[in-house]
C-alpha cells in the first residue's frame, strides 16, 4: 500500500503547494500592457502631482502597484496599463484585488482620475475615482497585449519578443520604448531596451518597428534617453 500513500502525498503536495504557486504565477504573467485598437481623442487633466520630468519606468514595476486613496485606503492593485497606440499615452489602468489569487475588478482607473503616479503607489482622491468600463469608450477585449508580441522590423526581420514596455513620465505617462528579448547568451536571456517612435503598427501577434532601432539599443534605463535621441536624430535625418 506504499504506492497509495505516495500517490496521496503527491496529490496533497500538488494541491497545496504547486497549484497555488502556478495560479499566482499565471496571474502575474497575465498582467501587462494593452494597446487600444485605434486612436481616441481625449482630454484629460492628467496627474496633478507627478514624478520628476523625464523619469522612466518599466511596465512591470507599474503592474501590481497599489492604488491608494488620499485617506489611506487601498482599493486595488494595477493589473494592466492601457495605452493609445497613436501617441503612446496611457489611457487607463485595469485593476485587480490584492489576494493570493487576485480577481480582476470590472472598474477602471482612467488617467485623468489619477492624482499621482508615485514610485510606491498610484494615488487617487477617493473610491469615486474608479470608473465603469464604458467610460473608456472602447472595448478592452479588442486591444492587443503588447508584452509577448514579436518585434518585426519594417525590413521584415524578427528581432525578438517584447518582454516589457518602457514608460516616460512627464506629467503624463506614455510609451517610449520596449524591452526586447532575443534568445540566450551563456544561459541568460539577452534583453535590451529599444526606443519605439509611435505610432507603429501593433497587432495581437506583433509590433512592426523601424529597422533603425536595431542600431539604437540601450542596456538599461540610464542609457535609454541617449538611444532614443539617436533614433529620433536618425529618423529626422532620413526624413
Amino acid at each position: 500500500m506504499d504506492w497509495w500513500q505516495s500517490l496521496i502525498t503527491g496529490l496533497v503536495v500538488f494541491a497545496v503547494v504547486v497549484l497555488p504557486i502556478a495560479l499566482v504565477t499565471t496571474d502575474r504573467r497575465r498582467r501587462g500592457v494593452i494597446a487600444l485598437p485605434r486612436h481616441h481623442p481625449h482630454t484629460g487633466t492628467g496627474v496633478t502631482k507627478k514624478e520628476p520630468t523625464g523619469a522612466l519606468t518599466m511596465g512591470r514595476t507599474l503592474t501590481g502597484r497599489p492604488v491608494v486613496t488620499l485617506t489611506g485606503d487601498h482599493v486595488a492593485d494595477v493589473k494592466d496599463i492601457v495605452f493609445d497606440p497613436a501617441d503612446g499615452t496611457v489611457r487607463c489602468f485595469t485593476l485587480a484585488t490584492r489576494a493570493l489569487l487576485p480577481r480582476r475588478l470590472s472598474s477602471l482607473l482612467l488617467w485623468q482620475d489619477v492624482n499621482a503616479l508615485g514610485p510606491d503607489a498610484v494615488m487617487i482622491r477617493d473610491r469615486a475615482a474608479l470608473s465603469a468600463p464604458e467610460k473608456l469608450g472602447e472595448d478592452l477585449g479588442t486591444g492587443s497585449k503588447v508584452v509577448g508580441a514579436r518585434l518585426l522590423t519594417d525590413a521584415g526581420t524578427d528581432i525578438g519578443r517584447v518582454a516589457d514596455v518602457v514608460f516616460g513620465l512627464d506629467g503624463h505617462a506614455h510609451v517610449v520604448g520596449c524591452a526586447s528579448e532575443s534568445g540566450h547568451r551563456f544561459g541568460r536571456r539577452v534583453r535590451v531596451l529599444l526606443p519605439i517612435p509611435l505610432p507603429v503598427p501593433i497587432s495581437r501577434e506583433r509590433v512592426v518597428v523601424p529597422a533603425q532601432i536595431t542600431d539604437c539599443q540601450a542596456e538599461g534605463l540610464d542609457a535609454f534617453p541617449e538611444a532614443r535621441a539617436k533614433l529620433l536624430a536618425q529618423m529626422h535625418g532620413s526624413a
Partner: peptide, 18 residues
C-alpha cells in the same frame, strides 16, 4: 468612516512615495 490604528501602516506621500 475609516478608523484604524496608524501604527504599522505604510507612510505615503500624496505623490505615492513611501
Amino acid at each position: 468612516v475609516v478608523e484604524t490604528d496608524p501604527v504599522g501602516k505604510v507612510l505615503l506621500t500624496e505623490t505615492g512615495r513611501q
